[in-house]
Design a protein around this nucleic acid. Structure first.
Lengths: 237, 237
DNA sequence: CAAGTCCATATTTTCGAAAATCATATCGTT
DNA sequence: AACGATATGATTTTCGAAAATATGGACTTG
């Protein structure tokens, strides 16, 4: 009973954005990234309308925006569906991330000022504190996810290019969905805390070559993990 | 009289996409790229509605999609406007294009097969034929624009990453808008035909280092040209 | 039995009215 | 006159009904 009750009854209309459409976009994005909606699953208006308590039009706007981000697949005249996953797509996202993130970390190390250093250090600090709380399943902890995202965001924030940062953010979201996909099957997270610490130190000590190498390894090994433990989900489509 | 008449009276409803929204998105995109709409100009629903003969909702969907592409600026609760231009943005777009296009041309040269070679050669051939027709103002010729776009697209098409190709396409559009911006003030186009020919030959003869160098020069010199001849428009904002 | 056609239903897409929000002008107060 | 509050008009945003399109099943035909 309570599950079927529309959100509008228990939730304020606008949480994240100033418009309902922006709000729904945000909530749908989070849900797709967290694999609360299965990759490839059709996104029917009736269902979503009931769920979020908004109109056709507003939903359409949100879905259109997410389609542009690559999290939703728009099939003209045949509706929308959650973007499918595949080995090929995982490889593409991983390669694109490495290409861009490597460049951005170089620029950030070159240009970063005191504020940047402080942001990197403090976001890592918060991430570590949250990790102590529940070292088992970090991806299930919304706060860990936010802190993790903010640490990686802080690392490259001083790169000087809003354009590349926006592209990076989209790719990060798409990669995070794959991490969630494999989270249930992964035996135990590897030593991420140590990796983050090493990346932070390479960045703060202005060692671009080391930072780049650590970041690339970080991204690729995460993707390898996904391919290993969620392989059956990637081939099924 | 005839100018004020809505498009719906003289134009089929759907030209490019299967849905009206996709169609409007396409037409608005072309118009923004061609600077038929001034950078920074507010995009009022009443005006666009009259012009394109569609409803609020459909327009909103198109504008949302273009906002995700970076051609439109969405100001929540205060409508949309054509994305502003600036020196900073031009530099960012140029740098991002170089970063990505250089990588893609390398991959394409490595992986391209016979079909790729044929596509590169034939798109260049068509571009040259069109250039002979009207060597004065290529950017004003819609066919030249399409051929030019298709040649550059063909060059990287064999890179193997749909993800990076999509990002590249967005950046290409944003850069093309800057070319249009300066087109009216540029005294005379430099030897683009020769540059394209050289790039084609470097690609077909599988010389990645040369191709990369030529592409980077091609992109940067075009951007420099824009900065020179449209400088007054970039500072004004 | 395969393949095509037509119809009924499910679903998406589009529309214009209505609600919400913002921008501007007006007025009153200090 | 300067400032803040408030009302008014302009504009965006949201909604649910209506139109358009796709889907699946029953029926015919070769």
């Amino acid at each position: 009973m309570a599950e079927i009750m529309p959100d509008s009854a228990i939730r304020p209309r606008k949480e994240f954005g100033k418009t309902i459409a922006a709000d729904i976009t945000h909530r749908l994005r989070e849900e797709i990234i967290a694999c609360g909606l299965t990759p490839g699953e059709p996104l029917r208006f009736d269902v979503l309308r009931e769920r979020f308590g908004v109109s056709f039009t507003t939903l359409r706007e949100a879905l259109t925006a997410l389609a542009a981000e690559g999290l939703v697949d728009a099939q003209e005249q045949r509706g929308f569906r959650v973007a499918p996953v595949s080995r090929q797509d995982l490889v593409e996202v991983t390669d694109a991330r490495v290409l861009i993130e490597v460049e951005l970390i170089r620029r950030a190390i070159e240009r970063g000022d005191d504020d940047w250093e402080i942001a990197v250090i403090s976001t890592l600090h918060r991430l570590k504190r949250i990790e102590q709380r529940d070292p088992q399943h970090p991806l299930r902890d919304p706060e860990w996810k936010i802190a993790h995202r903010q640490f990686h965001q802080a690392l490259v924030s001083a790169c000087g290019s809003a354009t590349l940062l926006a592209i990076r953010a989209e790719l990060f979201d798409r990669a995070e969905r794959y991490r969630h996909l494999s989270a249930n099957f992964r035996p135990r997270p590897r030593d991420k805390a140590g990796e983050h610490q090493a990346i932070m130190q390479a960045a703060i000590s202005r060692n671009p070559d080391l930072a780049v190498q650590l970041i690339e390894t970080h991204i690729r090994s995460t993707a390898d993990n996904v391919a290993t433990y969620a392989g059956h989900l990637l081939d099924a489509e």
